[in-house]
């Protein structure tokens, strides 16, 4: 026999609760499964939300929870961009590298087959931009094929340290579709000292030379600096320098150093506090490119279907934000 009074309890209890706040309504005696069904049906019908049944009581939020992703800028919606780690090895071994890359690091290449399939599925999944990173992608003998698979599908950005534009690697660069490709070259300072102190002697001069080569080839170049958060106020000389190189203001990107990978300090980035950027490596789908070598931010080892991986990232993100929103309601100002 169902305790029909539960519906009366629900109406009475929820009437005294402010919109967005929660109430616990004891289920009382009777078939708990049936009672829970009744509560769920009532919530669905009246536009309230059954959060859980705990210790014999239904926890209900009055009204609908607003979509936690509703307030995001359109570019912040996970799945707007797709990052791919083409490989993990690098000609450099920067002390802050979030991917723990170096000449000794195993390549773990994504490979042309997966890249092609990802690019195709990305279009289907509504992705609007592809970003290729590493490691140093120009170490790959088939980089031009990888890039072509991407630029055929979507506008693409290729991240590089810009130091390898010679010989057959330069030939590969020349074969890339400059209408659909931008290079993002890492440069940390207006003068060699800071850059070289993290990335190796002589690396600044070669990066600047790489920027010029790419520009001469008619390729759009973005410059990205990685700086400790505390230094981000001393940026004017750097911007002036990049202006002198002919880098457009919107192509001058400053990122704060993250405490990830080889970095021994930097911003602490946790899944809960980091807006995700869906990132695929040979090992699976990760939350964000800064954590693509950290198992704690592995979302799934199943890369395909890509749409499902993106959906999973959105689900988790939505969940974290909903919890964060709820947390702000746990402490009403009183």
């Amino acid at each position: 026999m169902v305790n029909h009074g539960i519906v009366l309890d629900l109406v009475e209890r929820l009437a005294t609760v402010a919109d967005g706040a929660t109430a616990a309504v004891p289920l009382g005696p009777g078939d708990q499964g049936l009672l829970t069904q009744t509560v769920a049906a009532w919530c669905a019908r009246t536009g309230n939300e059954l959060l859980e049944v705990r210790n014999g009581a239904a926890i209900i939020r009055r009204g609908h929870t607003p979509d936690p992703l509703a307030g995001l800028a359109s570019g912040q919606m996970p799945g707007t961009r797709l990052w791919m780690y083409t490989n993990f090895d690098c000609n450099l071994a920067c002390d802050y590298c979030c991917a723990r890359s170096s000449p000794q690091t195993a390549r773990r290449a994504l490979g042309i087959d997966r890249v092609r399939r990802l690019a195709g599925e990305a279009v289907q999944a509504g992705v609007s931009e592809l970003l290729l990173t590493g490691g140093e992608p120009f170490l790959l003998p088939d980089l031009d094929d990888l890039v072509e698979a991407c630029t055929d599908a979507l506008p693409t950005t290729l991240l590089t340290n810009g130091m390898l534009f010679r010989g057959h690697r330069l030939e590969r660069l020349r074969r890339m579709d400059r209408d659909r490709l931008a290079l993002q070259i890492s440069l940390d300072s207006a003068t060699p000292d800071t850059h070289d102190s993290h990335r190796g002697t002589g690396s600044w001069a070669r990066a600047v030379a790489g920027i010029r080569i790419a520009q001469d080839e008619g390729i759009r170049v973005r410059v990205a600096a990685t700086l400790p958060a505390g230094q981000s106020h001393e940026l004017q000389p750097f911007h002036t320098f990049l202006d002198s190189l002919g880098i457009a203001p919107e192509d001058q990107v400053i990122r704060a150093l993250a405490h990830r990978g080889n970095a021994d300090a930097g911003l602490e980035l946790t899944i809960e506090s980091l807006i995700p950027e869906v990132t695929v490596t040979a090992d699976g789908v990760y939350w964000h490119p800064v954590s693509a070598d950290d198992t704690d931010q592995l979302v799934t080892a199943e890369i395909f279907p890509l749409a499902e991986a993106i959906a999973e990232v959105r689900r988790r993100f939505s969940d974290y934000r909903a919890r964060a929103n709820a947390a702000t309601q746990w402490f009403p100002c009183a």
Partner: peptide, 16 residues
């Protein structure tokens, strides 16, 4: 309005 709020006769089948 109260009748609607309790889900008419659908949420308490056979009761009211």
């Amino acid at each position: 309005n109260t009748w609607e709020a309790i889900g008419r006769d659908e949420l308490m089948p056979g009761a009211m």
